[in-house]
Design a binder for these strands. Sequence first.
DNA 1: TACCTATTGCGACTATTTCGCAATAAGTAA
DNA 2: TTACTTATTGCGAAATAGTCGCAATAGGTA
Lengths: 124, 124
Amino acid sequence: MKRRNTPSKEAVLHLLVNTGKAMSRDAIEQKLEVEIDRATIYRVLNRFCEDGMVHKIVAEDGKQYFAVCIKCDEKQIPDNHFHFRCKNCETIECLPEAVQFSAPNGYNVESVNCVLTGICKDCS
Amino acid sequence: MKRRNTPSKEAVLHLLVNTGKAMSRDAIEQKLEVEIDRATIYRVLNRFCEDGMVHKIVAEDGKQYFAVCIKCDEKQIPDNHFHFRCKNCETIECLPEAVQFSAPNGYNVESVNCVLTGICKDCS
DNA sequence: TACCTATTGCGACTATTTCGCAATAAGTAA
DNA sequence: TTACTTATTGCGAAATAGTCGCAATAGGTA
């Protein structure tokens, strides 16, 4: 299953890189200058996740948010950092702080999904 | 808006207390002996949340889970502890460990939603 | 240039959660 | 007990997010 370069992939990736925050499919679709189908956006994003270029967070609103995290490569578990979701500007950003936890004996943690919700620096 | 006692409320609350884990509306509906409407279950659960008897977690699957947390009263922010979601038995439980974080300056955290996903003690 | 197949767009579909409205019933007071 | 107020319920409809199958399109390679 070799990947191919397409305008859709490039547009979505550029948008994520430029924004620097985690975005929902909805936000991505609105900010895109090209028009891309809903299903395609999801497929592109999920492919990015599979390839480790992007990570996915699920916020308190139950929606998926996708972000290119610059520091991902440096860590073993890529997305074990906190995320901050601003209720005002509706964005999610990756916080530099890593999530510290020690699961009880017998619990095997495979992934971490930590979102702090509130008002961000720019909005307060 | 005074609350009234109804069989539906009692049934849902008893189930949550007996189970001791966080349950989705789906799981609640299946385990209930009485038949209660979907919408009613949601309304009952959300009322419990408003009253501080129950807290809500959103997991990586985007679904809402509700739990009576015994230790809630002892803390200021009620649900700032980790949750563990088992991919095998499909349950979510409250872990005793509190979430430690320090948001950057200017960020105002109002709520915390931290879910660790993996295989729980009973399933591994 | 031709070919293989990854990718796209479209439409339909599932699942979760919410909402409006009329009917029911819990709590209170007479 | 009876009457009354209104919180609560059930039902149907609807909003929203995300997925899937299929035919058409278009990268990449030979």
